[in-house]
């Protein structure tokens, strides 16, 4: 039975999907923890919708839709930062930029003849049809993202934990914030190919949210988040093929299942120690 399941990875399309999916799960897992802790989970959604505008322009102009989407998403991310610094409320900046991208995308699409298969595949994900050159782009860009995250890990950690303290300590907070948004934009566009525009912010936030329930320190949480994402991608691909279901939706549902289980586990560990000192309750390691 297990052999049966795994034998589908003989197929080239499954290999490509698995490689792309695992790489994306890794980056989403790490970025997601910071995004969730900084309470900026809606940023992923906003950037996805903005990049949809880029995809539309790319398809309409017969250019590279992914590259165009990355460009537009990065610009959108910088736009969000600029608006936030002008003291437009955080969420409002997201709404404004998201509307600009989505509105532009819809207008462009309607002008070139409405929704076609290519556009639909961006909305709902297309992991099973990625080509080797898609995979190459994903691996190269996300390897670069991982490298930046590794180098700036301690800065992003401080910025997340204590933004004001980070400013006082003389860190280039604005540059770091913008850099973080750009990394998120790139990741979102690439992850969009797995689960689609509509679900991509879930792939970013849900494995991280599940890992945060485990209460295993920051490093442990990052590892757990990556692991949960990878597991959901691999299992989701297999399940989708066997059920003949959409891979993106299946992967996201598995992420949600992981969140559900971790919430149950967290609830149980709290209950079990209700008699103990509250400060000891959740973290006996």
């Amino acid at each position: 039975m297990a052999n049966d399941l795994l034998s589908i990875f003989q197929f080239g399309f499954m290999q490509r999907a698995l490689i792309a999916g695992l790489v994306i799960a890794t980056v989403c897992g790490v970025l997601g923890v910071f995004v969730v802790l900084r309470r900026t989970a809606p940023l992923g959604d906003a950037l996805a919708h903005v990049s949809f505008g880029g995809v539309a322009i790319g398809i309409a102009a017969g250019l590279f839709p992914i590259e165009m989407a990355i460009l537009i998403a990065v610009l959108g991310g910088i736009g969000i930062r600029v608006l936030q610094e002008r003291h437009l409320y955080g969420e409002l900046s997201l709404t404004v930029i998201q509307a600009a991208g989505l509105g532009g995308g819809v207008v462009v699409i309607s002008m070139v003849g409405g929704l076609n298969v290519e556009i639909l595949s961006f909305l709902f994900g297309q992991i099973l049809t990625v080509t080797w050159s898609d995979v190459a782009l994903i691996v190269v860009l996300l390897a670069a993202t991982i490298l930046v995250l590794a180098v700036l890990y301690k800065e992003f950690f401080l910025l997340t934990f204590d933004p004001e303290g980070a400013r006082v300590s003389g860190l280039p907070v604005r540059a770091l914030d913008t850099g973080f948004t750009v990394l998120t934009a790139i990741t979102i566009v690439l992850a969009m190919q797995v689960v689609g525009v509509l679900l991509v912010s879930a792939l970013l936030a849900v494995p991280a949210a599940a890992a945060l329930q485990l209460r295993v320190g920051l490093k442990g949480t990052l590892l757990a988040s990556v692991f949960i994402g990878m597991l959901s991608v691999a299992a989701g691909l297999v399940l989708a093929v066997f059920l003949n279901a959409a891979a993106g939706g299946t992967i996201v549902l598995l992420c949600l299942a992981a969140l559900f289980i971790s919430l149950l586990m967290a609830g149980r560990s709290k209950q079990g120690e209700s008699g103990a000192r509250p400060s000891l309750a959740v973290d006996d390691r």
Binding site: V33, K154, F157, D162, A166, S169, L212, R215, G217
Partner: peptide, 25 residues
């Protein structure tokens, strides 16, 4: 009164005090 769900341990948190003196990159 910061986020009680923040995952960092005491060790990880105190080490954050070394971020600025060590420098970016």
């Amino acid at each position: 009164a910061f986020d009680p769900n923040f995952p960092a341990t005491v060790r990880e948190t105190v080490l954050l005090g070394r971020v600025a003196p060590r420098g970016v990159f």
